[in-house]
Design a protein around this nucleic acid. Sequence first.
DNA 1: CTGTTAGCGCTTTCAG
DNA 2: CTGAAAGCGCTAACAG
Lengths: 351, 351
Amino acid sequence: MAVTLADVAARAGVSAATVSRVLNGNYPVAGSTKTRVLAAVEELEYVVNGPASALAAATSDLVGVLVNDIADPFFGQLAGAVQSQMGPGTPGGGPRMAIVCNTGGSRERELTYLTLLQRQRAAAVILTGGAIEDPEHIEALSARLRRLEAAGTRIVLCGRPPLPDAEAPAITFDNRGGAQRLTEHMLSLGHRAIGYIAGPAARTTTRHRLEGHRAALAAAGLGGGADRLTVHGGAYDRAAGYEGTLALLDREPGLTAVLAANDTVALGACAALRDRGLRIPDDVSVAGFDDLPFAVDTTPALTTVRVPLTDAGAHAGRLALSPDAPAEGVVTYPTTLMPRASTAPPPPEKP
Amino acid sequence: MAVTLADVAARAGVSAATVSRVLNGNYPVAGSTKTRVLAAVEELEYVVNGPASALAAATSDLVGVLVNDIADPFFGQLAGAVQSQMGPGTPGGGPRMAIVCNTGGSRERELTYLTLLQRQRAAAVILTGGAIEDPEHIEALSARLRRLEAAGTRIVLCGRPPLPDAEAPAITFDNRGGAQRLTEHMLSLGHRAIGYIAGPAARTTTRHRLEGHRAALAAAGLGGGADRLTVHGGAYDRAAGYEGTLALLDREPGLTAVLAANDTVALGACAALRDRGLRIPDDVSVAGFDDLPFAVDTTPALTTVRVPLTDAGAHAGRLALSPDAPAEGVVTYPTTLMPRASTAPPPPEKP
DNA sequence: CTGTTAGCGCTTTCAG
DNA sequence: CTGAAAGCGCTAACAG
């Protein structure tokens, strides 16, 4: 049916082995032979049979990228950056293909995808974004990853802390520090009643950002009743911000600032404040996290914390491909406070 | 090394063929045998070797999804919707895996990815988003697609018109109608000096939206000098909107409305207007296209045209998987005008 | 319903 | 530097 290596070999008047060697370029072949083979490939429009070579060589050129939500630009940027490292002419030789898998934040699907990737004999797997902090899930995950590793798949963590057992390099973001600096910024503006809309529970990202926030509060001697002004959104979406803000407002009508788990959540927070007739930042200041592209374009422009997604994603891609990359270790990318117009000093106390 | 079918067979005391049959469930097997096999699979933690079965069966469970820009939520939503159809328990049997390929709008990469997918013997390939209108590229693309088809890969087009030669079902959006209704909306508000920031040149989406816009203008007897108020952005990004708006303003200071190629471009347009000290919609109205999630959260909320990305993506996924889906034909999804606060009647003429 | 027998198309020693 | 031969792990007739 389709044209095979043997067809090319016949056409070029050489053996199949030689064609294979030319195509893989991992073995010396005479220049003239090479030219002849390449010509035959061209003429026959030969395309390698990936499964066949994966089977014979016991490795594939597929790289799995697990994301929590592909429709979220946070992951889109990360995934794009990973892919930028995979074209032809990239570390580790031939063109790799990234398989972007959308877990939707579901533990089960995370595990399922890992099995599916093992089944494809993926060359590497990159797990991105905050990890779920349930011990049971961590155990199940580690087990799957250990099996993948045993099968020769490289594991890279990007945006999440290293795992207890599995040996894999991790790229993390300084979420804690970023959150802390953001809260310090709010405090220095004079805010005292600062609401916090945290991300989904039991996620590393959620916890780290919250810890940074609390650390800043505690350092300012405001640690006491802080929990009263913290709500947990169910997801990293607009609805969480909207509803969280309404809840905070009910709880503390004197609220002067809202810090959101991320930029998308902040958008929802802004909408809720407006619906309540509050002006930003005159009445209430708002800040997000991540500095997604749209943050600079909101009105007022959103104060947030920049997370170097592109750098980190590309780095993860390189770690996944380079055969000689470290098999372990944590690299932490810094985060940067981006003060913009959505935060300002609180309004003067009403008499 | 890894545990194979034969190991499972030995453990269960049956032949490899039987294990295969149990696993694929496409052949009658006695209940007791099945239980025994499944137990062995469990105990040995057996994971099918994808490449091996793809080779033997001459088909794989990989589905390629080509997108122009994975970091753009437009494609993120589309890709997410496609993937939603691929989990276990979806049309066409076993769990498929989507390979999301980021072409970045490059012709060459589009072609390269197609070859890579052919090499993986992908079960299907879904091409999403506007197509490039260069005849030479269309020819090259058709040729690649014909080869893929010949190799048994299903082709599905989503968000782009059918191709001349290749036989593939297409799902399109009524971009023309949406754009026309949007411009009619602006005209009915009283606008006459309407700037248009078109998308990248030589893209079907760009052309269709522009055609709709012009049709509305022409119907209102304003067709004449319309081109003067149309600029082409280099990409579907914020910068295109920002720079395009400044260019339009220079060209026509009396501009009262800006229509952007999509919502992201509209964001840039808003920023430019604000930087020029113009209020939205009091001085200038702005509208986008696509109705991405953030559109409702901008200030003022963005008037736009809703494109049913989720429905279309899921539909494309189903077409790609169902063996009995039509091999040809065009389904057009309607688009809906979403009038919001960013558009209003033009300001009264200055005396 | 189950086992046997051939390959699928490629890579890779091992000889030359 | 090149060819021959032996699988990689699985599926798919074909018998039983």
